[in-house]
Protein backbone atom coordinates (compact mmCIF):
# COMPACT_ATOMS: atom_id res chain seq x y z
CA UNK A 1 0.00 0.00 0.00
CA UNK A 2 2.80 2.42 0.87
CA UNK A 3 4.47 1.68 -2.45
CA UNK A 4 1.21 2.57 -4.22
CA UNK A 5 0.96 5.81 -2.26
CA UNK A 6 4.59 6.62 -3.02
CA UNK A 7 3.84 6.38 -6.75
CA UNK A 8 2.13 9.79 -7.12
CA UNK A 9 4.82 11.41 -4.94
CA UNK A 10 7.47 10.03 -7.27
CA UNK A 11 5.36 10.99 -10.29
CA UNK A 12 5.16 7.45 -11.60
CA UNK A 13 2.57 4.81 -12.37
CA UNK A 14 3.63 2.28 -9.80
CA UNK A 15 2.09 -0.64 -11.70
CA UNK A 16 4.19 0.15 -14.75
CA UNK A 17 7.41 1.41 -13.11
CA UNK A 18 7.65 0.74 -9.40
CA UNK A 19 11.34 1.67 -9.22
CA UNK A 20 10.85 5.41 -8.69
CA UNK A 21 8.19 4.81 -6.02
CA UNK A 22 10.51 2.47 -4.15
CA UNK A 23 13.30 5.03 -4.41
CA UNK A 24 10.93 7.54 -2.81
CA UNK A 25 10.34 5.05 0.01
CA UNK A 26 14.10 4.50 0.32
CA UNK A 27 14.65 8.25 0.65
CA UNK A 28 12.74 8.31 3.95
CA UNK A 29 14.16 5.02 5.25
CA UNK A 30 16.27 6.64 7.96
CA UNK A 31 13.19 8.34 9.41
CA UNK A 32 11.34 5.04 9.75
CA UNK A 33 11.82 3.25 13.06
CA UNK A 34 9.76 0.18 12.20
CA UNK A 35 7.09 -1.10 9.87
CA UNK A 36 4.94 -2.59 12.59
CA UNK A 37 2.77 -5.69 12.34
CA UNK A 38 0.07 -4.93 14.90
CA UNK A 39 -1.64 -1.88 16.35
CA UNK A 40 -0.49 -2.90 19.83
CA UNK A 41 3.14 -2.87 18.71
CA UNK A 42 2.70 0.62 17.29
CA UNK A 43 1.05 1.89 20.50
CA UNK A 44 3.99 0.48 22.48
CA UNK A 45 6.39 2.29 20.17
CA UNK A 46 4.52 5.55 20.74
CA UNK A 47 4.27 5.13 24.50
CA UNK A 48 7.99 4.32 24.84
CA UNK A 49 8.95 7.39 22.81
CA UNK A 50 10.34 5.32 19.98
CA UNK A 51 8.07 7.02 17.43
CA UNK A 52 6.29 10.38 17.35
CA UNK A 53 4.40 9.95 14.07
CA UNK A 54 2.71 6.86 12.67
CA UNK A 55 0.40 5.81 9.92
CA UNK A 56 -2.34 3.92 11.69
CA UNK A 57 -5.92 2.75 11.55
CA UNK A 58 -8.54 4.78 13.34
CA UNK A 59 -9.49 2.03 15.79
CA UNK A 60 -6.13 2.57 17.55
CA UNK A 61 -6.86 6.23 18.29
CA UNK A 62 -8.56 5.74 21.68
CA UNK A 63 -5.75 3.51 22.97
CA UNK A 64 -3.09 5.80 21.47
CA UNK A 65 -4.57 8.77 23.30
CA UNK A 66 -4.64 6.77 26.52
CA UNK A 67 -0.94 5.96 26.08
CA UNK A 68 0.15 9.37 24.77
CA UNK A 69 -2.36 12.07 25.78
CA UNK A 70 -0.73 14.72 23.57
CA UNK A 71 -1.13 12.73 20.37
CA UNK A 72 -3.43 14.13 17.67
CA UNK A 73 -4.95 12.71 14.49
CA UNK A 74 -3.50 14.58 11.52
CA UNK A 75 -5.93 15.61 8.80
CA UNK A 76 -4.12 14.85 5.57
CA UNK A 77 -4.64 17.59 3.02
CA UNK A 78 -4.88 15.11 0.16
CA UNK A 79 -7.27 12.83 2.01
CA UNK A 80 -6.96 9.82 4.32
CA UNK A 81 -6.39 6.32 3.02
CA UNK A 82 -9.33 3.91 3.04
CA UNK A 83 -8.53 0.56 4.63
CA UNK A 84 -11.51 -1.67 5.14
CA UNK A 85 -12.47 -4.24 7.70
CA UNK A 86 -14.17 -6.95 5.71
CA UNK A 87 -16.33 -9.89 6.68
CA UNK A 88 -15.72 -12.76 4.30
CA UNK A 89 -17.59 -15.99 3.72
CA UNK A 90 -15.12 -18.56 2.40
CA UNK A 91 -16.03 -20.36 -0.78
CA UNK A 92 -17.66 -23.67 0.13
CA UNK A 93 -18.47 -22.54 3.70
CA UNK A 94 -20.84 -24.96 5.43
CA UNK A 95 -23.02 -22.42 7.25
CA UNK A 96 -23.61 -19.56 4.81
CA UNK A 97 -26.98 -18.68 6.34
CA UNK A 98 -25.44 -18.37 9.80
CA UNK A 99 -22.71 -16.17 8.33
CA UNK A 100 -25.38 -13.89 6.84
CA UNK A 101 -27.11 -13.73 10.21
CA UNK A 102 -23.80 -12.73 11.82
CA UNK A 103 -23.30 -9.98 9.24
CA UNK A 104 -26.83 -8.75 9.93
CA UNK A 105 -25.99 -8.80 13.63
CA UNK A 106 -22.87 -6.64 13.34
CA UNK A 107 -24.67 -4.22 11.00
CA UNK A 108 -27.62 -3.84 13.36
CA UNK A 109 -28.01 -0.22 14.55
CA UNK A 110 -27.55 -1.04 18.24
CA UNK A 111 -24.31 -2.98 17.64
CA UNK A 112 -22.99 -0.33 15.23
CA UNK A 113 -23.63 2.34 17.85
CA UNK A 114 -21.95 0.30 20.59
CA UNK A 115 -18.88 -0.42 18.45
CA UNK A 116 -18.59 3.24 17.52
CA UNK A 117 -19.05 4.46 21.08
CA UNK A 118 -16.45 2.00 22.40
CA UNK A 119 -13.92 3.24 19.83
CA UNK A 120 -13.75 -0.13 18.05
CA UNK A 121 -14.93 0.44 14.48
CA UNK A 122 -16.45 3.44 12.79
CA UNK A 123 -20.12 2.94 11.96
CA UNK A 124 -20.84 1.74 8.45
CA UNK A 125 -24.33 3.24 8.57
CA UNK A 126 -24.35 6.76 7.15
CA UNK A 127 -27.36 7.75 9.31
CA UNK A 128 -25.69 6.80 12.61
CA UNK A 129 -25.80 9.65 15.15
CA UNK A 130 -23.12 9.72 17.87
CA UNK A 131 -22.85 11.83 20.96
CA UNK A 132 -20.12 14.50 20.75
CA UNK A 133 -18.06 12.51 23.28
CA UNK A 134 -18.28 9.31 21.21
CA UNK A 135 -17.68 11.19 17.97
CA UNK A 136 -14.44 12.60 19.45
CA UNK A 137 -13.04 9.05 19.53
CA UNK A 138 -13.60 8.70 15.80
CA UNK A 139 -11.45 10.10 13.06
CA UNK A 140 -13.99 10.25 10.30
CA UNK A 141 -17.13 12.03 9.33
CA UNK A 142 -18.88 12.83 6.09
CA UNK A 143 -16.06 15.16 4.99
CA UNK A 144 -13.27 12.64 5.51
CA UNK A 145 -15.26 9.78 3.99
CA UNK A 146 -15.90 11.88 0.90
CA UNK A 147 -12.16 12.50 0.42
CA UNK A 148 -10.92 8.98 1.13
CA UNK A 149 -8.32 7.57 -1.20
CA UNK A 150 -9.36 4.11 -2.34
CA UNK A 151 -6.88 1.30 -2.82
CA UNK A 152 -7.23 -1.08 -5.75
CA UNK A 153 -6.56 -4.21 -3.74
CA UNK A 154 -6.84 -6.60 -6.69
CA UNK A 155 -4.08 -4.81 -8.62
CA UNK A 156 -2.04 -4.33 -5.46
CA UNK A 157 -2.22 -8.01 -4.49
CA UNK A 158 -1.21 -9.05 -7.99
CA UNK A 159 1.85 -6.80 -7.94
CA UNK A 160 2.89 -6.84 -4.29
CA UNK A 161 5.16 -9.91 -4.42
CA UNK A 162 7.93 -8.06 -6.22
CA UNK A 163 7.34 -4.92 -4.19
CA UNK A 164 7.74 -6.80 -0.90
CA UNK A 165 11.09 -8.19 -2.05
CA UNK A 166 12.35 -4.70 -2.87
CA UNK A 167 10.82 -3.34 0.35
CA UNK A 168 12.67 -6.00 2.36
CA UNK A 169 15.92 -5.09 0.65
CA UNK A 170 15.38 -1.43 1.58
CA UNK A 171 14.49 -1.96 5.23
CA UNK A 172 15.98 -5.33 6.15
CA UNK A 173 18.89 -5.88 3.78
Amino acid sequence: MFVMLAGPKAGTDVFAHEGAALEAVKAVKDDVVDNYQTGSAMINLASTGEVTVSITLDFTLARLRAAVPTIVWAQLTDGDIAVFNTVNIPKGAAEVELAHQFIDFILAPAIQKTLAEQGVDAPTRADEELTPEAAARRTCGAEQIGRLKRIDYARMNAAKGGWIDRWNEIFGG
Binding site: A41, N44, L45, T48, G49, E50
Partner: peptide, 12 residues
Protein backbone atom coordinates in the same frame (compact mmCIF):
# COMPACT_ATOMS: atom_id res chain seq x y z
CA UNK B 1 9.55 -10.00 24.29
CA UNK B 2 7.53 -6.80 24.52
CA UNK B 3 9.03 -6.12 27.95
CA UNK B 4 12.20 -5.19 26.09
CA UNK B 5 10.37 -2.29 24.45
CA UNK B 6 9.83 -0.88 27.93
CA UNK B 7 13.40 -1.59 29.00
CA UNK B 8 15.28 -0.56 25.85
CA UNK B 9 12.95 2.14 24.44
CA UNK B 10 13.94 5.80 24.23
CA UNK B 11 11.74 6.50 27.25
CA UNK B 12 12.65 3.11 28.67
Amino acid sequence: SFAWLIILGRNG
